[in-house]
Amino acid sequence: MEKVNIVTQAQPWVDRFPLTGRYTYGVAGERFFRELKENGRFFGTRCTACDVVYVPPRLYCLRCFAPLEEWVEVPSTGTVHTFTVVHQDLDEAPLPTPEVIAFVQIDGCDGGLVHRLGEVAPEDVYIGMSVEAVLKPTAERQGGLTDIAYFRPTLR
């Protein structure tokens, strides 16, 4: 048999997976995003035994495994727990404007949300900064994380 030049055969086989995920928000998430969409309010669930308020809310306490039935309204303000400034997109191409992504700890809660910061220059962001949620207008809200347009520094 004739010899095949291995180097010329070193070409990849290209394909993609036809996967589209459709995700429900779950028993607790359904109520959280419904309140956000329809009433522009944030809710959490409280575990009295562990003295924890979960935001986003959970159906159960991950610490003691009890079902959580106490829903509490929480503020839409928080503190920048940590943040990063992103300069590239997923394909490593430069972004026209750098984006600030922050983990915002919601005031009075044990959890928080990862979201964009807006109305602030990246160099002015600092850990511990007070921020508040800016919601999209009611008509544009679809029931999802992007119903929050971004968080911005709290006006004093």
Binding site: V14, T20, G21, R22, Y23, Y25, G29, K37
Partner: peptide, 13 residues
């Protein structure tokens, strides 16, 4: 309520 996502699963094996 729900959200959808199509992962960018392009592979070169």
């Amino acid at each position: 309520l729900y959200t959808t996502w199509q992962p960018r699963l392009f592979y070169a094996w």
